[in-house]
């Protein structure tokens, strides 16, 4: 069992947990992820690592409920435990390798973080900060209440640009607008961009940065089962090659990703997941006998 030392909410429906997992904490690097299983009957859910403390042996995870399993995670409190917690999985970010540090120092780096994808961006920016590299960061959220980790980012970023879709806080508009503004109107230039967030956001970030010929790395979060390369569920088309996000990724050159195909694949279990989620939230009450979902049978 993997004890939850702290469970809380960062904003709206975004949750943060600090989990005791010494083996993962000892070795993980920014960009890697873990797989978490709540109990005997639970799914294996891949989650990005938001922070780690090697001495305390803890990992911080941040998530937003999207299906039945992550919805169940929200019921866990400080002192509870996950049955299974395994990692670190995937390749670390290319920017956060000691061996590449000299090269990285020469680059002007822009991070673009959207929604719950803000969490996996944090350890990368923090690692760079600790190694003397100041990267600029755009954090995007739908509205003011959903902006997360602002103080943490302030402490480690070069320039921090916060934007909300509805203009209720920081700049106004999508992250792609900020990219355009910085590069066109505000005289900024970058050699390397990392965009992490919902698939649709990463897709449009890549379309935007392509205009400026700005190399952009994205972090894919496809359907996954084992996370060790065994099942192949997480295969993504990168250029004309099939890659497994769990062992080859999760980070890939965003300009080579077929986002439309990836989004279609992600929707594969939508109906079934939706059914489970509805059942979890509403119990048997939604079974009005509409005959559609078959849940009353």
């Amino acid at each position: 069992m993997y004890r939850i030392l702290k469970a809380g909410q960062l904003a709206g429906n975004i949750y943060e947990m600090v989990v005791e997992a010494p083996r993962v904490a000892k070795r993980c690097l920014p960009g890697q992820f873990v797989i978490v299983k709540m109990d005997e009957v639970g799914e294996r859910i891949p989650l990005t690592i938001c922070d780690y403390d090697r001495e305390a042996g803890t990992i911080t995870i941040v998530f937003q409920p999207v299906g039945a399993s992550t919805e169940k995670f929200t019921q866990l409190r400080t002192g509870d435990a996950f049955r299974d917690f395994v990692g670190p999985l995937g390749q670390p970010s290319d920017l956060c390798l000691e061996s590449e540090l000299e090269e990285t120092k020469k680059k002007k780096i822009l991070f673009v973080a959207g929604g719950v994808g803000t969490a996996p961006v944090y350890p990368q920016v923090k690692w760079l900060h600790e190694h003397g590299v100041a990267a600029d960061v755009i954090v995007g959220a739908k509205t003011k209440d959903l902006v997360i980790l602002e103080d943490k980012f302030k402490a480690v970023s070069g320039n921090l640009y916060i934007t909300t879709d509805d203009g209720s806080y920081g700049r106004s508009g999508m992250v792609t607008k900020v990219i355009d503004d910085l590069l066109t109107n505000e005289g900024k230039s970058y050699d390397h961009c990392v965009a992490i967030g919902p698939m649709i956001m990463m897709k449009f970030c890549c379309l935007t940065t392509k205009k400026y010929n700005l190399k952009t790395i994205v972090s894919m979060n496809p359907i996954m089962v084992d996370g060790t390369g065994m099942c192949g569920a997480c295969r993504v088309m990168v250029g004309d090659e099939v890659k497994f996000a769990c062992v080859d990724g999760p980070e890939f050159d965003g300009h080579l990703i077929d986002f439309d195909a990836a989004m279609r694949r992600q929707a594969m279990y939508k109906t079934e997941e939706g059914r489970k989620l509805l059942e979890l939230r509403e119990g048997r009450t939604h079974h009005g006998g509409c005959g559609n979902c078959g849940g009353d049978k």
Binding site: V41, E43, R44, V225, D226, M230, C231, G232, A233, R235, V236, M237, V242, A261, R264, R265, A267, M268
Partner: peptide
């Protein structure tokens, strides 16, 4: 081969056997 509905036997069996 990356279409929805194509699985490796490993994935299909893992979902059914390990994950029940």
């Amino acid at each position: 081969e990356t279409a929805k509905g194509v699985f490796s036997a490993n994935e299909y069996l893992t979902r059914n056997n390990l994950m029940k």
